[in-house]
């Protein structure tokens, strides 16, 4: 299988008030077409920033220092703004984290679904709304006709997340970035939503970069997984392999820190502080090497 997304040596820092802090340190990652790739890390590991870099929604203070993001053979970071916008929504889409805030509170669901259809598929208003209705059926929203005319505050969190999934899949993109897409939902809704995403992904052949801090979610939906810490990918492998024989010490600690109920003898243990400081030291070491190579 060929890679649909190939990130190489991506480094990024946040610059604010003269202080520069490196967030991504030489990230390399490849996602095959049709693959669901998990990106797992703690808060502050840089996983969301990586998603934002792909989607071109970085905060103003973020500066990309080096690296490439090849999507379908073209480097996204080198594209003209209009070309990049042409890919967004049609080829690359987002399933956001918080269904409560990701929909515009003053626009009807139908209008928000129709946006990409009008913009990229050049449908007229009426056809777009008809198509939006079909999309809502596909994500199993009851009474899709009525939902089209409703406002976000009239739907539950799970329903809104379904709408957001419908928006993401509306133009059959080749890559979807799912940024903590099930974190804000309760466990039973989470399971339904994961199943729905998986189903739509299989039928459309879309690749997904699934950003999460939850290894349980990874086990349910991902084919492969990368472990990220301090802006570095520590390990990248098939999910089964990572779960059965993790190579990196941090991955092993992460697995132990995940509560499991299917395993009698499994003991929950927090990640050792010594390991965290070793990782942070390694990150500092990386920054020093970069600085030295620039100075030299």
């Amino acid at each position: 299988m060929s890679a649909i997304l190939k990130i190489s040596q991506l480094s990024l820092c946040l610059r604010y008030a003269g202080i520069s802090e490196r967030i991504l340190r030489g990230i390399s990652l490849a996602i095959d077409s049709g693959e669901v790739h998990g990106l797992v890390g703690e808060s502050g590991a840089g996983k969301s920033i990586l998603g934002q870099t792909i989607l071109d929604i970085l905060p103003r203070i973020a500066v990309i220092e080096s690296g490439t993001i090849d999507f379908d053979g073209q480097n996204l970071l080198r594209l003209a703004p209009t070309q990049r916008r042409g890919l967004l929504g049609s080829e690359i889409a987002l399933i956001p984290q918080d269904p409560m805030t990701a929909l515009n509170p003053v626009r009807r669901i139908g209008q928000q679904l129709a946006d990409t259809l009008v913009l990229h598929l050049k449908l007229n208003r009426k056809d777009a709304l008809d198509r939006a209705c079909e999309l809502l059926e596909e994500v199993r929203i009851k009474h899709p006709r009525r939902a089209l005319r409703q406002y976000p505050h009239e739907l539950s969190g799970g329903m809104r997340q379904r709408v957001l999934i419908a928006i993401a899949f509306s133009c059959k993109p080749r890559l979807i970035v799912a940024d903590e897409s099930t974190t804000a939902l309760d466990v039973s809704v989470q399971r339904q939503i994961l199943r729905l995403i998986r189903e739509l992904q299989v039928s459309s052949g879309t690749s997904i970069l699934f950003i999460t801090h939850d290894l349980g979610v990874v086990a349910k939906i991902c084919d492969r997984v990368s472990i990220i810490h301090s802006g570095r990918i520590l390990e990248s492998d098939a999910v089964k392999r990572i779960f059965s024989m993790p190579e990196h010490e941090y991955t092993r600690a992460l697995l132990k820190a995940t509560p499991r109920y299917d395993h009698g003898k499994h003991q929950f243990r927090p990640i050792p502080k010594a390991l965290i400081s070793t990782l942070q030291l390694e990150a500092k070491e990386y920054d020093r090497r970069i600085r030295d190579s620039v100075d030299a």
Binding site: I57, G89, L94, P96, D98, V106, D115, T116, I167
Partner: peptide, 29 residues
């Protein structure tokens, strides 16, 4: 800076479109 504005951007809207179609009505309130 709201989430829905970021989502609108990932739909392929230009900055002006995001302002006019998404943000303006909320900001007017």
């Amino acid at each position: 800076t709201q989430d829905y504005a970021a989502l609108a951007h990932t739909k392929g809207f230009s900055r002006l479109q995001v302002i006019l179609k998404e943000a303006l009505r909320n900001a007017l309130i």
